[in-house]
Design a binder for these strands. Sequence first.
DNA 1: TACTATGTATAACC
DNA 2: GGTTATACATAGTA
Lengths: 182, 182
Amino acid sequence: MQTPCNKEEGSSMQPSSSRRPKGTGRKKIEIKRIENKFGRKVTFSKRRKGLFKKTEELCRLTDAEIAIIVFSNKGRLFSYGYPSVEHVVNRFLDEQCDDQSDPFSPEEVLEEEEEEEEEEEPLVGGGEEGYWFEESIDDLDSDKFEEYLCYLECLRKNLVLRVEELIMRRTTEIDFLEGFGN
Amino acid sequence: MQTPCNKEEGSSMQPSSSRRPKGTGRKKIEIKRIENKFGRKVTFSKRRKGLFKKTEELCRLTDAEIAIIVFSNKGRLFSYGYPSVEHVVNRFLDEQCDDQSDPFSPEEVLEEEEEEEEEEEPLVGGGEEGYWFEESIDDLDSDKFEEYLCYLECLRKNLVLRVEELIMRRTTEIDFLEGFGN
DNA sequence: TACTATGTATAACC
DNA sequence: GGTTATACATAGTA
C-alpha cells in the first residue's frame, strides 16, 4: 500500500514578483499544418516527446504491445516499441496476412473474456511470436543462443512459405475477381 | 476562461444528486500495470483514444508520417497511420535494411528542405548470401556465430519487407480490378 | 532552452 | 456511456 494523496506541485507556485503579461501562455490552436517552419519544428519536437511518453505509459499501464513510427517532414526517423518495434510490426504483418488469407472469416474469434494471465514475461520470450532479446548477444549462454538460432531459422522458413503462399493466393484472388464483374 | 470558484457546495445548484464529494476527480496515478482487470480495460480504451487523437494531431500539425500499432493485452489490433500504416511500416522496414537487396523501387522523396543530417544508422551490414553450416552449432566460433546471426536477421527483415510489398501490390491490383482506388 | 498560463486528457465516480 | 475535478501537456513568450 502506498499513500494515495501525496501530491505535490512541482513548480507552479511562484511569489508573484516577475509576472508576465496576463495574456501569455497557452492558447487554443487549430489543428492544421503549421506554416511557419520553425514553429512547426518546435511543435514537432514537443508533441513527439509527449506522444512517446503517452505511448510508453499506455504500454506500462495496460500491458499493450505498441509500436509507433514517426518520420518527420525532413525524413528523420523516430520509433518506439514495446517489446520492440520489430516485434509489433511483425505481429501486425502477421495479422494482415491472416486477415487476407480468409476474406470471409467470421469477424470475432478472439473475444473470450475471463483470462488472467499473469507474471512478468521473461526477458527471453519463447514460442512463435514472443521472442526478443534485450541483453547483448555476448551475454547469452549457449542454450539461449541455440534457441534463438532455432527461432530465426523457423521464422525464416515461415516467411519464405508465406511469400510463396501470398503469391499463389494473389493469383487466385485476381482470377476470382476477373471472373466476376470484369 | 472559467471562474475557478463559482460552484458552491450544495446551496443553490442541484440539491444533492449531481454533487460529488470534493475529493473525487482525477488523481495522480503511478505508471505501473493496472492489476484490476476492468480498470485496465477502461484505461486502455480511454488512453488509446487519446493517443490516437494526439497522433493524428501531430500528423496534421507537422506533416509527419506516423504509424501507430496497438495490440491490447487481449490481442486485439488497433492501428492508425498517415498516409497509411502500410506506407509508414514499409518505409520503416526499408530504412532498417536499406543495405540489402531492394528489388522494388525505393521512393526518393526529398523535400526542398535542407538540413545537415548528423545521425548515422550503424546497420549490421552483415552477411551476404552463402551461409551454410553443416557443422554443429556448438563447434562454431563466436565470430562465425555473430556473422550468421547478422545474416539471419537481415534476411528476416528483408523477407518481412518482401511480404509487405506483396501485400501492397496485391491490394493495389485488387483495387484496380474492382475499379476503386480505395 | 526554460517558464507559465491555459487547454486538454483522464482518474474517479455515476 | 457520462460527468467533474484534477493532473498533465503544451502554445506562447522570454
